[in-house]
Design a binder for these strands. Structure first.
Lengths: 267, 267
DNA sequence: CGAAGATTTGAACCCCCTCAACTGAAGTGG
DNA sequence: CCACTTCAGTTGAGGGGGTTCAAATCTTCG
């Protein structure tokens, strides 16, 4: 598997920290080598829950699962690099994955993929190169559906085709929101709104992402994030380690001015 | 038509220049009032050419065109405001339209829509509020397809459903490229690459957009754009009015470092 | 424990924004 | 035809948000 992996240049991480491992490296390295296994029975019902698959015909879904591989990858492993042909539709079952883009030795996180979601569907369906790279953050279990099989089912199963529409529309929405935020807000405003979104109304919670990654996602340097966190203290935000406490939610909201059209993912 | 228009607050243009007209205003104003006309016969074959419709069944396409209205709008008119329910799928037949987003009295251009393309398809299909506002730049002829009809055909015509996938995937691709550019490039680099893209290999061409709008699209102020243009002179770029001359394409490319993964829309 | 990485803090600098004034082109109306 | 307005674009001065570089903790983990 992943035999299509070319030796494409490894992209420098955000503010360069040496090259990482590619999935290809891993398949050669006996520490990671796990023969690809056919999908495990316990993952199938999980997958079926995804809106992408929920509507499709049972026999098509079964045919698709039979083509699937599942593999557990170590942290910090490049699953795909932007520009490569899209060999597999990926489904993250467990762990965390980041989607990133790079240019001229710089790198930025465009999306953080939570467990049980698909990623890079667009490239698979269009049979086009990946738009973004993907890298594991944690040790992650990933289901791999060969793109050809996905496209074949897409052509025959009409409910699946409509599932793809729903999924793509959601991804589209997500990127538009990200672009809006980048163009209309300062970095402190982005941080404040990120905190509000993550809090989900709670006054205390844990960041589910390292600060360096958060900085990249919010398009600032780690230094600037650190300073922005301090700068939010007057608005009643206290962050120690991963622990976030919002002492004065009203104050924070008055500063952040969250907007349904940018911050509400359900819209 | 557009009777669903609420009196939603008019959003301030980029760096505030008084309120514009809404489509609702226009429909009340006798200067603009044109009874909505059923689609003109000459527009139908044009529309049929769009990849979105090209695959669908003839009878479904005809049914859809019978539901369509066409209207010519004056420049600077708000066709839709973000957050409103999506009543119509829009197709720009002639003229220019900008898609924008706003937050806290600021506004930014996210996409420039060229003639003969659809816009805000995602909201129509999802039956969700518009993600972006749309405003005419020039006097523009726009075909309006009631969202309900579009969704009905989407449910019944499988080829159309797949056309929607292709269209959405392309929109998605466009926003991802925009986000990449915003996060990875400086404003001068964005300008340089914009010029290269527009040039299409020619050494001389005309900007098809006002500088103020270009500035908003590239996420800079008009002042900064003006200075960035001067700053590109050493790289062999001369811009007088809308006329652009690239005297040293190689120099410009060496500076701009265009990337297939950001700048090549076909990918 | 020791090494490597993540986070913080400080200092200096630069890109880009803001504000203000000016220029030039395009109407408009007398 | 020409003042007058209006608006896009330009230029200058000053300031602020954010970056870069460097170094000091703090964590994590083998």
């Amino acid at each position: 598997m992943l035999e299509g992996e070319t030796g494409l240049c490894r992209l420098a991480p955000y503010r360069e920290t040496g090259p990482g491992l590619t999935a290809f490296d891993a398949s050669l390295d006996t520490r990671f080598a796990r023969k690809d296994t056919p999908m495990r029975a316990e993952d199938v019902p999980e997958m079926r829950k995804l809106p992408l698959f929920s509507g499709m015909q049972q026999d098509n879904f079964e045919a698709l699962s039979r083509c699937a591989y599942v593999q557990t990858f170590p942290p910090q492993l490049d699953l795909i690099s932007e520009g490569e042909p899209s060999d597999f539709l990926h489904i993250l079952v467990e762990g965390r994955v980041e989607l990133l883009a790079s240019w001229k030795r710089n790198e930025t996180i465009l999306t953080l993929v939570p467990p049980l979601s698909t990623f890079i569907l667009a490239a698979t369906i269009r049979d086009a190169p990946y738009l973004m790279s993907a890298r594991t953050i944690d040790r992650s279990r990933v289901v791999l559906l060969p793109s050809e099989d996905v496209r074949r089912v897409f052509e025959t199963d009409n409910a699946f085709a409509r599932g793809v529409v729903a999924e793509l529309a959601q991804c589209y929405h997500g990127v538009v929101r990200h672009a809006k935020e980048l163009k209309l807000r300062t970095s402190m405003e982005r941080l404040a709104n990120y905190i509000l979104r993550q809090s989900r109304g709670q006054t205390e919670f844990e960041l589910d992402i390292e600060k360096t990654r958060l900085a990249s996602y919010l398009n600032m340097t780690a230094e600037n994030l650190s300073r922005s966190i301090r700068a939010l203290q007057p608005y009643g935000v206290k962050i120690t380690g991963a622990n976030v406490t919002i002492e004065a939610p009203a104050e924070l909201k008055r500063f952040a001015k969250p907007s349904q059209l940018i911050d509400d993912s359900s819209n």
